[in-house]
Nucleic acid binder design. Structure first.
Lengths: 344, 344
DNA sequence: TTGAAAGCGATACCAG
DNA sequence: CTGGTATCGCTTTCAA
């Protein structure tokens, strides 16, 4: 059932039917009702592609999910981010077009998306320190919002991010205040912007308490369970082992926990482990349910924010004004309410 | 740059350019090369929507991700499933349209996808025992492949599934052969088809070794970390506690591991825990790295299979023949090669 | 081997 | 308030 069929059946023109369906004011109420009823009855839905062609808007957002070429694995956090974003999209009638792609060929995808006109905008995940995608997208004129920030680039694009630096600084100070002096940092790869900011926060926290960072306690690698395991074993076998640690992700923390178990080290007693997961949440001695629920609900919130930003950007195509936004989502051990800090 | 621009620039008709680009044989080689070069040079990509409108094929597949209305959370396994599927899609030029939606309103999405003609087929995840979506999709004539099976329905649709029953039976027999007599089953909700088949396998395993199932050791609930934790505590405090357990998912196993830790029970020594995760993999005393890598790579394989099935189904629209397929993916402790059993 | 023209299913401008 | 018609960008007969 398409528009013409419907129009013929109603004895009206396509024009009128279209107007009635899209809420144009110049249609009489009686006609509109008749059209609406018929549409409902026949389960009519406008053909997305035809509509897109006619309006020039795809009503779709592209999400590009990088598949780490080293680990060949998807960060499960993206699922929750998308879940959050889709709440927003649903309200605004946008669809999601997904591309899962090795992080070495992302450029091609963005170019494709732009030139094939299949999406009105894209979300950029996990920016690297000096991310080339941002320039690329700006060049092709595809609206975008970044989840995270590219440290070395000017902040003249839209993003949703959390204050990684401050969070790690706080966590570090917290550990020092508990009496810890030897604190380790098990970080992700520093080509990722957030990993750099986390280290910076860690160092700032130590400095604020008059401590110097020990390079032997600062580890960095791809964020996997195996890395966490290896890191923890490595740390525990040092001659002057740390008594506490900041881990950059839940998955790392799982590995660390396993190594601790094997070594007979009880987390929370013998050793303090703080996990700050996926830009968004903050846990002590991770391993309990909060790590699943709180992390995920905050990632979802970030997804919602990003989607709202992007729709806003697209919605006003005349003015290419950019927006900055920083959402601070720090979630305690129990799933409490989220706090959002927005700066203009 | 669109087709007309390109045609004008080349001094050819749109028809010829289109034919050259799409590999039609009646174009002279010289012309084709000229067109191809110009297209590459101008970074020309056909407008997806126009193409879809003209051909009647969207070149897109719908994936509907259910968001459990109870836990409000996305099963991270879907990410890997989609990653696998997208390898296949990419090769065939299909895009993915994603809908994340509460499991109470899935019907609407499928209807929408069908009538809005935005996808050529869909993947159905986590079928329930008597899943209404299957009849719905068949009615609207949208090609689909199910990841899993709907137990109570005839097998006259395409699916990719693993032999849950046999896997649980084997695992159970394995535990009995190790000397265990009191074995627990921490299962998912039995409205899901695979949960039923897992229990059946568990019971069959016990029966095969001459043991009777004890209802007190058979738990069922939504698969969360908290449930695993509660289940383990519950099991350990019984008057005649089990010495081994089958868990239905990694996330449950995490919770059980936490409870075991707290109770001072060492997995693999005091208590044997086998996790069979997300229809696809099989682990002993879960918690090591294999659980992440092996699980995920097998889920990806399932995604690839499903995508191939679906494309095959779509590809031959004349014959509505259905295909059955059962992939058996059993992965041991270390990430070994996958074994695939396909029966026609 | 090439080109003109008719759709595909909607929107939007211009008349009436 | 309603309708005719051009248009979006591409594919696909049908003619030449």
């Amino acid at each position: 059932m398409n528009l013409r069929d419907l129009a013929v059946e109603l004895g009206l023109s396509q024009t009128t039917v279209s107007r009635a369906l899209n809420g144009y004011p110049e249609v009489s109420e009686a006609t509109r009702q008749r059209v609406l009823d018929a549409a409902r009855q026949h389960n009519y839905r406008p053909n997305t592609r035809a509509k897109a062609l006619a309006t020039g808007r795809a009503m779709a957002i592209g999400h590009v999910i990088p598949l780490s070429t080293r680990t060949e694995m998807v960060n499960p956090v993206f699922a929750d981010f998308i879940a959050g974003a889709s709440e927003t999209y649903m309200r605004h009638g946008y669809d999601i077009v997904l591309s899962v792609i090795g992080d070495d060929q992302e450029d091609r995808v963005y170019l494709d998306m732009a030139s094939k006109r299949m999406v009105d905008g894209v979300i950029v995940q996990s920016p690297t320190v000096d991310d080339p995608r941002i320039a690329l997208l700006r060049k092709v004129g595809l609206p975008f919002v970044v989840h995270g920030r590219a440290t070395d680039l000017p902040d003249d694009y839209s993003y949703v991010d959390v204050n990684n630096k401050r969070a790690f600084q706080r966590a570090t100070e917290f550990l020092v205040d508990l009496g810890h002096r030897r604190i380790a940092l098990v970080n992700g790869r520093e080509r990722l912007g957030f990993a750099v900011r986390r280290r910076t926060g860690f160092e700032a926290g130590l400095a604020a308490r008059g401590l110097a960072p020990d390079p032997a306690l600062m580890l960095t690698d791809e964020m996997t369970e195996g890395y966490g395991y290896a890191a923890m074993r490595h740390l525990l076998t040092q001659e002057d082992p740390p008594t506490a640690c900041l881990s950059a992700s839940a998955i790392i923390a799982f590995g660390m926990r396993r190594a601790a178990d094997e070594a007979g080290v009880r987390l929370g007693r013998d050793f303090s482990l703080i996990t700050y997961d996926d830009d968004l949440s903050f846990f002590r001695n991770s391993g309990d349910e909060a790590i699943f629920t709180a992390l995920r609900s905050s990632v979802r919130t970030a997804g919602r924010f990003a989607a709202e930003q992007l729709i806003d950007l697209i919605g006003d195509p005349g003015t290419p004004r950019q927006r900055l936004m920083e959402a601070e989502l720090i979630v305690g051990r129990s799933t409490g309410p989220l706090r959002h800090d927005t700066r203009p």
